[in-house]
């Protein structure tokens, strides 16, 4: 007998404003992530900065993903399979801190977000579950 799951897999989609990085999402983001990881070499960062579009065309990403990279639309990139551990390489290439990159996906300004963190972060009350509203 296979062991049973402790919770239904769909529950991973029941967390407000959260895209859990599942195997299927990782596949969706695979070529986007290839691009992000290429930025771990200085020479590649330089090449990317010199001509972003030409550099992106070397990867098998969707046009939508490429456009979201050009727009630095991190929220869109997460919708398209992106994961922050990869995307942060793009932010670092731009000289952007991890906190700024994260705040850019939160719908808050960088200053508001930094202030919230200094005051103890975001309280989990009410945002644990979409279904249970707790």
């Amino acid at each position: 007998m296979p062991r049973t799951r402790l919770y239904p897999l769909e529950d991973l989609e029941d967390i407000p404003g959260t895209k859990v990085f599942t195997a299927l999402r990782s596949r969706q983001g695979y070529y986007l992530h290839k691009f992000c990881m290429s930025l771990m070499k200085e020479a590649n960062r330089e090449e990317f900065k010199a001509d972003e579009k030409a550099y992106l065309d070397k990867f098998r990403m969707t046009e939508e993903q490429k456009q979201a990279v050009l727009d630095r639309d991190l929220t869109k990139l997460i919708d398209l399979g992106g994961n922050m551990y990869f995307l942060v390489k793009l932010a670092s290439t731009d000289g952007m801190s991890a906190q700024k990159a994260v705040s850019a996906t939160s719908g808050m300004s960088a200053d508001e977000y930094a202030k919230m963190m200094l005051e103890g972060g975001r309280n989990p009350a009410g945002i644990r579950s979409i279904r249970d509203k707790n």
């Binding site: 959260t18 922050m84 994260v102 939160s106 977000y113 963190m117």
Partner: peptide, 12 residues
């Protein structure tokens, strides 16, 4: 949590 509308979540 590093993304989305729950980014910055802290559960002390």
């Amino acid at each position: 949590q590093l993304h989305g509308s729950r980014a910055g979540l802290i559960n002390e």
